[in-house]
Design a protein around this nucleic acid. Structure first.
Lengths: 150, 150
DNA sequence: ACATAGTAGACCTAACGAGTCTATATTCAA
DNA sequence: TTGAATATAGACTCGTTAGGTCTACTATGT
């Protein structure tokens, strides 16, 4: 029931990318340094992010990463599911009778189903843009209105 | 971000106890059998439930367990926190700078905080009574009209 | 050509979840 | 008083996962 470092790091990386000038390519190592992520660890996470279509990679010298879509189109739920797993609160919601033979008559299943929906809806409503905006504000001592390619 | 078997088993056990005639004492083995919980596994869970004040134990021959409070006063959140851990979505919400040195200026912290609140509120609003009622209804092939505390 | 990236994957370790079992203390009832 | 039945406490195993580290390989800009 808790969110691990992978998601934390992914959110940081994405927010950092969102805060770059439009078109700027940032390397793995730069993100790691600026966001205090252990060396090399981001390589696996970025791979997932690329595979999930949230980030675009640029191989080769002067390569690195950019966002593959606008920050406002990347929700926390997207990120979680991309770098971790589908947002499922209890396995039975995914695996049904494979997980528990009483699935058909289970009386708590719907509780978890609803809880999951509530959580997923919330997380789907928060985007990297929301987080990056706040980051910008804190960073520059609150100059509002950050523009970004969208 | 998912809920393990302990919570599942605890909910089953509690619902089962809630469905007993008032005052009936049920043994660990009986609960395990009726609820399809692996032998002996419940002993540790019930211990937590007793320690948490959700269940009352009766040692000795003809001993067993009864609910320590009314089913309507036992929420899913209570159960989760009793048999697993405090409901915390991200460690930084609990450990602050111990977990992440950027805690003070973190821009995603509040997102998890809100998500956690949303989830906790929902889970605090569902009780064993809600689940046991439905169980009874299913058992008795009864009427639609599911009630839930909201 | 070559330095500089990402890509893919191996590898390690500690912790955790799930499950099993046993020794002990306690209590009921014959 | 004795013995069976019960919770309690904790040891123990085993497989999986999270978190982290590193290296060989491939692609590419200059």
């Amino acid at each position: 029931m808790n969110v691990g470092r992978r998601v934390d790091y992914a959110v940081r990386a994405l927010s950092f990318l969102a805060g770059q000038p439009s078109g700027a390519v940032v390397s793995r190592a730069d993100i790691e340094k600026s966001q205090d992520v252990p060396s090399f660890y981001l390589s696996k996470i970025m791979k997932d992010l690329v595979a999930g279509g949230l980030v675009q990679s640029h191989i080769g010298s002067k390569g690195g990463f950019t966002l593959a879509k606008s920050a406002g189109a990347i929700s926390i739920k997207d990120i979680y599911e991309t770098v971790e797993r589908p947002l499922v609160l209890m396995e039975c919601l995914d695996q049904g009778s494979n997980y528990c033979s009483y699935c058909a008559v289970c009386t708590q299943k719907s509780v978890w189903e609803e809880a999951q929906t509530v959580l997923a809806n919330f997380l789907a409503g928060v985007t990297i843009a929301d987080i990056a905006d706040r980051q910008g504000m804190k960073g520059r001592m609150a100059k509002p209105a950050i523009q970004r390619a969208g």
